[in-house]
Simulated scan of single mutants.
Amino acid sequence: MKSRILKILRSENKIVSGEELSAALKVSRVSVWKHIQSLQGSGYRIVAGPKGYRLENSPDALFAWEFAERQSNIHYFPETSSTMDIARDLARKGCPHYTIVIAGRQKKGRGRLSRIWLSSEGGLYFTLVLRPDIPAAHASRITFLASVVLAQTLRKLYDIDAKVKWPNDILVGGKKISGMLSEMEAEADMVSFINIGIGVNVNNDPSIKEPVATSLKKLKGKEFLRKELLSVFLDEFENRLNTKSFDDIISQWKQYTMTLNQPVKIVTYRDTYEGIAVDVDENGALILKLENGTLQKVVCGDCFQ
């Protein structure tokens, strides 16, 4: 109902009477008023007067009702420990494909190798629950697809030179603007679900504690609507998933990479490797040429350049 009220108020861009809203929504005027009050309490500046209601301003909101067509699949929390934790629980309970968990901020956001992901107010933090019909061996291609789509989205919307760093970080000018974390469970060698957690620094300032990080606000000197970024990414990523064009995703990823042909240090749970990143194979493993000339394949880890 909130989504429908906002749609009417935004499309009319004028005072809309309670009677008009009541007739359009087929609910009582009392019900309309209660929803208006709820929206006002959520930060929407809706002026109520004798002639009706006028929407003057909307917050930078990520409420489920802001994504009308996806509303039933979105779980929004102003604050939570980690969207990955909630998404894992939902996935194991059978939530549908393309369920999305969004947080205004996270108290225990995390990155790869259990590192902390700073999740202050103003950033975009969400996890996708995906159920692609693919072998578990090809699961990493989905995460590479997400990083390519996000890099393309950042480039298109904000005209920034977003590049990907193996495995799935996105940097601008050598500073990190986005990170991804994926988890998978499988049955009989087929994917049961893949959860992809994504953090994007939008209107927050991570550089206070992480000098090697940046945000859209720091890059452009103004704030941006997180809803627009999330909406465009979700639409494009879902479209690419539906076409099942995964076979060439690594070659697409290479078009945006800043990792290949560069000296890197890779840290895994057990080992540390240093060498030249010479290639990424069809399933996303990084191929390193070590100092002694041998090649080392690394399936997962953290990359330092």
Results as ranks from 00 to 15, higher is better:
Ile102Leu: 05
Glu185Pro: 09
Pro78Ala: 00
Ile266Arg: 02
Gly18Thr: 08
Ser17Gln: 07
Val267Arg: 14
Gly41Asn: 08
Lys14Val: 03
Gly197Pro: 09
Ser114Val: 00
Ile8Asp: 03
Glu121Ile: 11
Thr153Ser: 11
Gly109His: 03
Arg88Ala: 14
Leu230Lys: 01
Gly197Ser: 00
Ile36His: 10
Gln252Glu: 15
Pro132Asn: 04
Lys289Gln: 15
Lys34Ser: 05
Ile36Ser: 02
Val264Arg: 09
Glu20Cys: 01
Glu121Pro: 06
Arg141Phe: 09
Lys156Leu: 11
Arg92Ile: 12
Ala87Leu: 04
Ile160Asp: 11
Ile8Cys: 08
Asp189Thr: 08
Ala137Tyr: 14
Ser58His: 01
Val27His: 04
Glu223Trp: 06
Asn292Tyr: 05
Leu9Phe: 08
Leu39Tyr: 00
Lys217Tyr: 02
Glu69Thr: 12
Ala91Ser: 06
Ser22Cys: 02
Gly49Trp: 03
Val16Asp: 00
Ser42Trp: 01
Asp235Cys: 06
Thr153Gly: 04
Thr214Gln: 04
Cys300Glu: 14
Ala103Val: 07
Leu55Asn: 07
Ile8Ala: 06
Thr243Phe: 13
Leu90Tyr: 12
Lys217Glu: 05
Glu282Phe: 13
Pro263Thr: 08
Arg45Lys: 14
Thr272Ser: 13
Asp235Thr: 13
Lys218Cys: 07
Asn239Arg: 15
Arg92Glu: 15
Arg270Ile: 07
Thr80Lys: 04
Lys156Pro: 04
Val172Tyr: 03
Ser215Glu: 00
Gly18Asn: 02
Glu121Leu: 14
Phe126Met: 00
Ser17Asp: 02
Ile5Ser: 05
Arg54Thr: 04
Thr99Asn: 10
Thr268Pro: 12
Asn73Pro: 05
Val191Ile: 10
Lys108Arg: 15
Asp281Ala: 05
Lys14Asp: 12
Val232Met: 05
